[in-house]
Computed example of a mutant assay.
Amino acid sequence: MGPRPDDPPRPVSLEDTEQWAAAQGLAFSRTAEPGGFLMLGQYEGRTWRLECGAPQRHYLRGTELRARIDVGVEPDVALMLVSRPLKEALEREAYGAFTDTLQTSLPGDLPEEVRWLAMFEEMAWPGVPLPFWQHFAVVGEGGLHAKRWVQPSMVSHLLEMLLPAQGEPDEAGTRAPKAPPLMLMVARGKVSLRIEYPGDHLQTLADAVMLLHEAARCALQHLPQGTAKN
């Protein structure tokens, strides 16, 4: 059983994390990186991996959770769900890289997801709660694929993840929900997740695993299947 959302935040040790993983039936190992770990699990007969360590992307700070599962969808399906504050920051960076160098194309050293923001338009459709679009954005190639992938169950889970991540209080003293820096992608037949990990609550880890499972389930059930490229 995972932690409850109303549990008070506290520093999470590797021992805490290992015990949580064991309770979920997950394989756990520590990595050479201080405080780092690797988890392996199964979803619908497919192995997924989640690693915790120093960010491999400059747009995440502190510690990063990165996870991946091969769902075998058509390799050409390209979709990305990103927290809106992170999207806006990366778009400013991409625009700056383009204008500062006076190039006719984006620099090749930008991460793939940053290039996607320049290549693909944001998509939206009716029937999704407004708070979702206020806190998250969906970009990619093919609006029909996006609508099929971002199912109501995924929307609900993402909105629930906002609750512990409260923003700064406004003039009335109310703390508005704040989306964590988060990037969820379907590319080359795989679902991948990157999320900033504050390390002060196991609920964040539980949310990341649940989100990976939900994104994989939606991809397996609603996206066209194919042969994933390695």
Rank of each mutant, 00 (worst) to 15 (best):
31 T>I: 05
137 A>G: 12
13 S>A: 09
217 R>M: 11
116 W>F: 10
210 M>T: 15
53 G>D: 06
221 Q>S: 07
23 A>L: 10
5 P>M: 13
160 E>C: 01
207 D>M: 10
202 L>G: 08
148 R>C: 10
30 R>K: 15
147 K>C: 04
60 L>A: 02
30 R>Y: 03
21 A>N: 05
47 T>L: 01
70 D>N: 15
23 A>K: 10
172 A>H: 09
45 G>F: 11
112 E>R: 13
103 Q>G: 14
147 K>E: 14
152 P>V: 04
182 L>C: 03
87 K>G: 01
184 L>S: 09
128 V>N: 06
76 D>Q: 12
56 Q>E: 15
107 P>S: 01
70 D>G: 04
178 K>C: 06
82 V>Y: 02
92 R>M: 10
140 G>R: 12
180 P>I: 01
38 L>N: 00
49 R>I: 04
35 G>F: 08
54 A>P: 00
127 G>E: 08
51 E>D: 02
223 L>W: 00
127 G>N: 12
168 E>W: 00
10 R>W: 08
229 K>G: 14
96 G>E: 05
188 R>A: 14
187 A>K: 09
59 Y>Q: 07
127 G>T: 11
80 M>G: 01
118 A>I: 05
122 E>R: 12
227 T>L: 12
121 E>C: 03
75 P>Y: 01
223 L>E: 06
67 A>R: 00
135 H>M: 09
61 R>K: 11
84 R>H: 04
108 G>F: 12
48 W>M: 06
97 A>R: 15
218 C>D: 13
219 A>Y: 00
59 Y>A: 03
39 M>Q: 05
3 P>Q: 12
131 P>R: 07
206 A>D: 15
94 A>V: 15
21 A>Y: 04
161 M>I: 08
123 M>Q: 14
